[in-house]
Design a binder for these strands. Sequence first.
DNA 1: TTTAGTTGTCTTATAAAGAATACAGATTTG
DNA 2: CAAATCTGTATTCTTTATAAGACAACTAAA
Lengths: 281, 281
Amino acid sequence: MSSTMEPLKARRLYLLLREQILRGEVAVDARLPSEPALAQEHSVSRVTVRRALDKLASDGMIERRPGSGTFVSAGKTSMPVVADLSNVLTHLVEMGRKTGVRLISFAYVNATPAMAEELRLDPGERLQRSVRVRLIDGQPFSYLVTHVPERIGMSYSEADLASTPLLELLERSGLVAERATQVVGATLAGPEAADALDLDIGAALLTMTRVVFESSGRGIEHLQALYRPDRYSFHMDLERTGSDGARRWTPADAVRASEQINDTKKNNRTKRPTPQRRTKP
Amino acid sequence: MSSTMEPLKARRLYLLLREQILRGEVAVDARLPSEPALAQEHSVSRVTVRRALDKLASDGMIERRPGSGTFVSAGKTSMPVVADLSNVLTHLVEMGRKTGVRLISFAYVNATPAMAEELRLDPGERLQRSVRVRLIDGQPFSYLVTHVPERIGMSYSEADLASTPLLELLERSGLVAERATQVVGATLAGPEAADALDLDIGAALLTMTRVVFESSGRGIEHLQALYRPDRYSFHMDLERTGSDGARRWTPADAVRASEQINDTKKNNRTKRPTPQRRTKP
DNA sequence: TTTAGTTGTCTTATAAAGAATACAGATTTG
DNA sequence: CAAATCTGTATTCTTTATAAGACAACTAAA
């Protein structure tokens, strides 16, 4: 499965150092080993060490002080925007952040066999395919490829897509979403996604595939989402519920959800049911 | 953020083709463009195309038939083991699969500032650090780095770790886990993880960071998990609950959980509440 | 001030990746 | 069978990555 086609040594070292910094194995503001030391430690030349450090510096993870050393930067080591498992961005309003959507492409295509099966449709059925990029504070954080059956897609315009969440559009047109499955994984950035998300090809991406079904069991939306993990991640709070042998973990979101059903108006944004990671002041 | 230190051209092409195949843009059993055609299409030499295809072939994604062409393989395009959002592996028993654990390292270390903060402990406190690899059918699928406060870690042995889930060990020693937070993201494989998971350095990994708290609010476990996305992914079923303006998505697991609280004995393994992706017969 | 250690920059040499081309053997099609 | 097309393999050349070393400029500490 593995071996052959080695990534460049500089890339390897870059990934290694990056990992150590992100995991906190090297403290913030601490000095890294000197370039000659790193070169000897990893059995590479100083040029290679230098390339790795260049990359880290351009990522804003380290700061180089000539004559003194290179140090781990405080700022950039942390904290993407988080979403709960229902894919709802949290703490956005209160942080005064603004999101936007860019429509990359929009077309009608024939369903591939795989796509038809996932949506439980007839193979070859026409689908509306749209590619969008979501932005936060002007910076892209997600790359979304959506497939919707043609007849359903007709109920809204191309312009609607660039301004309104797709699920809202679907429900507005009378459809009733009943169930959805989501699968979360990881993949490497290909050329298109890398370009749209302002990343290097081969960067790590968080993926989510969601299929939404109406009550009849037919799929009404297929979403393939790619997220920049440094700007977006999934967050879930779990509570230990039940007693004795039947104790198990329950997502706290579910609790909050049932609380909110009889509470349409006041949205409790002061809740903090579980400790959050925070950056130091 | 991007540019400089280009990955190799062969790697780029590999990722591009891989992406197209995984997304179903190229049908299963279909023939890929010929090597000269791919070379011209992407403005690279045939040697480079060849390297990319070699990698795809070793991944089992394509099959090369001399004189005929290269074709997309049916088998390997799909389906890792799935876990629900409580991190419980599903469909394992019924599939007759066996899991195992390999203990990689075991030591006591000083808490880094970042780790201490996440666990809400005093900085510098002693922690038990263990690194484990979980296997399914003899193949590694997750790389787990766990930190537990020293006094708690004393309650079980090194051998226990290799055989029993950590959370069970903790509760067995009288601790009461009350809350947990989980953050799911993605990262690139570093040298250690790549080696343990039998992957190339720079491969995409699914990450989960979990912190478990007891009722006093102090952390009792910090877990950093790295998963091979081709062998493991998170799955969640959502249901549209509530009415009118208060409709929202609720994880179906929560429903199942509350059903099971009064149902200790019979574990309903026949449930299939939501359509699953499946491979063709 | 001196000294040791650091990053920044350059040179030269070797190793590896990629480009361009040619040709043998297998497969399909006319 | 013959022609066209494909993969497998080899050769040669160019470009890029890496190695090894030298030296200047800067910093901090003795």
